[in-house]
Design a protein around this nucleic acid. Structure first.
Lengths: 343, 343
DNA sequence: CTGAAAGCGCTTACAG
DNA sequence: CTGAAAGCGCTTACAG
């Protein structure tokens, strides 16, 4: 068990000062070639690597990005992490992940923990509970301390910062329009409760599409699901009570449940019932029939978010000399992936 | 933009020494009550929080756990992370995640990056390439430096450290036995290439079950898939050429592909073909028919791995006084989840 | 009861 | 060309 070697030890062994060792390893021209090479050889031999923590303290930056997301066991969020990781690594950053479990308290706790010096900036998507409460003081605080935050997907207008989103409303509109184009008249909507920002926006898109096509808008064809675990019952009720020939679901899970329930009832997808889901993932791909989805590239969102954050981080050299906060909101393209659940 | 307040600033404001502030905040009995309360009030007002990096440097421990896994967009690994996160958070640890992308070089790079002081210990699952090369020097090195490592799922006998695994062979045996019990005679195996440790073990279990039941072992009913993307072709060949009434697949993806291909060919699952897959996940649950699986709780594995690591971390007080390395290998229970793909 | 000093591992402006 | 000193933000053994 040979503990990691430090500058101090090298200095002692070689009988030079710590400064000399440090400078040699950083190839400072201040140091004579002979000494420099000697130190470098020695350091290489003992596999010296500078201690990240010491560097962080000295430089007052950690080269780490904090990610706070509601859930990790979720295809979309995993792909976002993937995307963030890629560009983080390319730029020499590592990634610290905390999960809020859709709980406000955990989100606050995790942010506070990471904000105390562990990371240089945040990339985050709001927990449901946070969106419900509308309490964003923990985020404001972090931003006020000068720590940049990039929000993605589940964002809020109440916070000024960089954001990366998709145009949920337009994408939903497009999906519903495609159902209409294929001759569907009575289109149901299975969505979340309104405080989930993206659910609300997708609902808006659905309504607008109907309106623009002069299709009567029927409240009874809309169901808002609070809890995924109980969605099966609600969905089977909907299928039993209402007659419709298409469904737009705001996520994969709702869609696959609809299809399974419809099948049990003897309805054929897509013949009797066309289904489109928001957010392409593993379920849609492997479901039978496979599901037509609105694809939002989590990877691209992650890439973009990381780029925005790192850019801001690296631009901070001038300190608060000029507080040039021109926050931007990037909108990532979506597109429809046609599969077997629609015709 | 009010930067985070430090002890130094508080000391200056209150006209006391930094030591006094530090001790007051840590409720040291050395400090007079008056001063102590004054400092605490002030600190609270300015929302003082100690800087993690400084603490890490001072204490020579970071209270962070490094996780290195091959892939995050993968149900099993996400659940493991979930499991690790839970117990990490309960114990005041945060979690730094790096992805190896199943690449040896990335695994080495990431380990080196994190090993330089950023974390206190590792939890990892080997990349495919690492298993293929059989090169584990990066892990040995980290362990030699005194940094504990816990491996899970994809482990190796070549490294001595704590491990958490499932009994892949026994679980596979049980799955195949259940197929035999339901009257299946010709059971195919769809597995990975042998260097993936778990794939190999599951294959062993399959063979043993056949042997014990005196079922002739047929090489032609075994296919080893290297690349998931091309598995569709290989699988459809198998289905066309060989006659069999059951398949044991070493993962969900293989299983769902088999089912979809069989369906296209007019075979009925489970009537014509029973299917069992290793590792329960989202695909098996939502596939049609839903798939009978061997469930290995990633969450439990994560819990256990984190517990083992943290225990070792907290036990390290005695330093190298007595090098009591009694490494253990925990075996997590598995069980069969019966669904529609078997009768 | 309070504070100066040393130290965690590093960097860098400044002397010599 | 080399090294002592100060400092990043904290803690703690030791003086006073």
């Amino acid at each position: 068990m040979k503990r990691k070697v430090t500058l101090k030890q090298i200095a002692k062994e070689l009988d030079v000062s710590i400064s000399t060792v440090s400078k040699s390893l950083r190839n400072s021209s201040e140091i004579g070639e002979e000494t420099r090479l000697k130190v470098q050889a020695f350091a290489k031999f003992y596999n010296y690597k500078p201690n990240n923590i010491a560097l962080s303290l000295k430089n007052r930056k950690t080269k780490s990005i904090g990610i706070i997301i509601p859930e990790i066991v979720h295809y979309f969020f995993s792909t976002v992490i993937n995307g963030i990781e890629q560009v983080a690594n390319e730029n020499g950053y590592s990634v610290v992940i905390c999960l809020s479990d859709d709980s406000f308290d955990k989100e606050v706790l995790n942010m506070e923990m990471l904000a105390n010096g562990s990371i240089d900036g945040f990339i985050m998507s709001l927990s449901k509970e946070t969106q419900f409460k509308g309490d964003f003081h923990h985020i404001t605080e972090v931003i006020n301390q000068g720590m940049p935050v990039v929000m993605f997907d589940r964002v809020t207008n109440d916070i000024l910062c960089d954001k990366v989103i998709i145009d949920d409303k337009a994408a939903a509109y497009e999906a519903v329009q495609s159902l209409i184009d294929s001759g569907r008249k009575k289109i149901a909507l299975v969505t979340t409760v309104d405080y989930v920002s993206v659910g609300k926006l997708r609902t808006d898109g659905y309504e607008k599409a109907l309106l623009d096509n002069e299709i009567p808008f029927n409240e009874e064809l809309i169901i808002k699901i609070e809890d995924v675990d109980t969605c099966e019952i609600t969905i089977s009720q909907l299928l039993h009570e209402r007659a419709f020939d298409a469904v737009f679901a705001v996520n994969e899970l709702f869609a696959v449940t609809i299809i399974k329930t419809a099948n049990k009832m003897g309805l054929k997808v897509p013949e009797d019932l066309a289904v489109i889901a928001f957010t392409d993932g593993i379920i849609s791909k492997y479901s039978t029939p496979s599901i037509t989805t609105v694809s939002q590239s989590g990877e691209k969102m992650g890439n973009k978010a990381a780029k925005m954050l790192i850019e801001r981080l690296e631009a901070e050299h001038d300190d608060d000399e000029e507080e040039n906060e021109n926050y931007t909101t990037e909108v990532i393209e979506t597109h429809l992936i046609k599969r077997e659940s629609t015709d």
